[in-house]
Write a protein that binds this DNA or RNA. Sequence first.
RNA 1: GCCGACAUAGCUCAGUCGGUAGAGCAGCUGAUUCGUAAUCAGCAGGUCCGCGGUUCAAGUCCGCGUGUCGGCUCCA
Length: 626
Amino acid sequence: MAPPAAAVWPVAPPCEDPMHDEMTEADEQLYRIRHSLSHVMAQAVLQLRPGSTLGFGPPIADGFYYDFVLTEPLTEEDFPEIEKRMKQIIKEGQPFEQEELERDAAFARLAAMGEPYKREYAEELFEKKGIAKLGFYTNGPFLDMCEGPHVESTRALSKVGFKLRSVAGAYWRGDSRNQMMTRLYAWAFETRVELDAYVKAWKEAQARDHKKLGKELDLFVIDEEIGKGLPLWLPNGTIIRDELEKLAKELEFKAGYVRVATPHIAKTSLYYKTGHLPYYASHMYPFMELKETREGEHGTEEEVRETYCLRPMNCPHHHKVFASRPRSYRDLPLRLAEYGQVYRFEDSGALSGLLRVRGMAMNDAHIYCTEEQVKDEFLAVMKMHQEAYDILGLTDYYFRFSTWDPEDPKGKQKYIDDPQGWETTQRLVHEAMVESGAKFVIGKGEAAFYGPKIDVQFKTVTGREETASTNQLDFGIAERLDLEYVGPDNKMHRPYIIHRAPLGTHERFVAFLIEHYGGAFPTWLAPVQVRVVTVGERFDDYAEEVVAQLRGQFIRAERDKSSDTMGKKIRNAVTSKIPNILIVGEREAEDGTVTLRRYGREEQLTMPLAELQADVLRRIAARKDD
RNA sequence: GCCGACAUAGCUCAGUCGGUAGAGCAGCUGAUUCGUAAUCAGCAGGUCCGCGGUUCAAGUCCGCGUGUCGGCUCCA
């Protein structure tokens, strides 16, 4: 058995929350407050729903939650009552008292408490983790098995700001085979002022939600009759896709990639061969069975069957391109790129706008190379990431080195069973990452089934973390598909394969970009780059000339043809977040000029049309509005 | 998939105690041609998500579906 990944490749210890700095003393205090509030909430809930049992109730990034198996359901309508009771408990000034009990005493206590889930966890702590004593905290009538720490008394919570946020379902220990519990989430901060500020910012962030903006800006729709998780890209959204694709193609061309185009479906037999099946079957659409009837020799009918699937990944298709003719080491690295459409059968409950869909276009490429080339190729991929993210102005993300977990109980179903392969590839990726200088955290057990990954993690405006991009090092597939090249020694060798998708999928990436820009795209990405607004209809002809001139230079310009007043037209252009508004009236028509009013800016400039055109073209070419 | 909430005009939403649906915006028509974030008037727009049930009567109550959203990671 190979040793655990983390033990073999030590890295600088990552901080607990990669988006934030390490815990300070103030954080420690906040942690106590939130932890204590969760007990106060649980006490209030038990008053309201006697006989309910408890799960976990930890502090989280912006507050805390507590899980319950409730005797009667709770809804948001019960929040005011729960909050009222919590305030009462705080007012009572119940002291928090800690006790540490050894095994037998602890189980006796737990039996008296009648908390089956606490007991289950206690068993695990004693049996598997081998702890000696178990902590219990009492405040007023409420007793909980808990590590702490807490504030001295609920009175210490009298000035804090808290507010129940939502009620949600959650499986005990996050495992879908377990009991479904009811989770109450709450926000909590040291002061009410901080809470109010946070809630206000949270509400403002909702305005940037890609689902909301996607509708307002006509970027995409998801139509029930097409199918859930299968977005339709509207003309405006398609422009953003096309621009991203153009960017990807340019970066890839410069980096020596070549493009291929492959079908969306394939025979399932190929996927068995690659090993994707059965690992991936539960995330694939049901297969298509082709049944052909043929006349047999003696008039009998034979059935010839072929089974096809919608591809959940592009890899096997690209591998077949690699295999289409003999390859020499002189051909390597071979970098095959495609914005490939794939289909994944995600759980219906996991679907969310463009962030989690069932049909998606991946910024995919596979790099076939020798072991000696792996590190440099991986570094070049990381550099491409950086370049793309710099252009897009994305900064709020972190890298996750997603590794194999040899101790995962579902290991054999989850990962290719080849410890040696894992060890080698993880070492190579680790070396490349250290050399790249990029900071990263380790995500044990987050690897793809066929190899370790570097994932790029983002947060959405609603605070959910998602993987935006991924780079993976594949071992084993070359063997399975018998991919090989002739080396300088005139012998056959297996290539290493890097899977990479710096721009992820259009669906998720555009979702991030919508939220990142708040829908106000820079000129190069904007569906409408220039909107021409006339002062009055006398200037329509000149406005048409302006539009024709700009469109002749492939600038996405259009004229507001409505009979609205100028003020209304400007308002419409601004609410549509169009980056460049051109005002034309008598002065402009006479001088051959336009007046530029840019999104989010006060100052305006009147300039010759040629100058405006050059300015817009420059900003488009630079992919940056300065 | 599971737990919960929600589903009314293109959009955002109102609709009381069960009595056959309203507003604003968008759209269309007409008038207005205006110099920097909403000109005025009129018109039109509905399978109240779907199916079933209760009822003299259902947008409203009940059941079943469908869809959307929040969660199911941050481990006493």
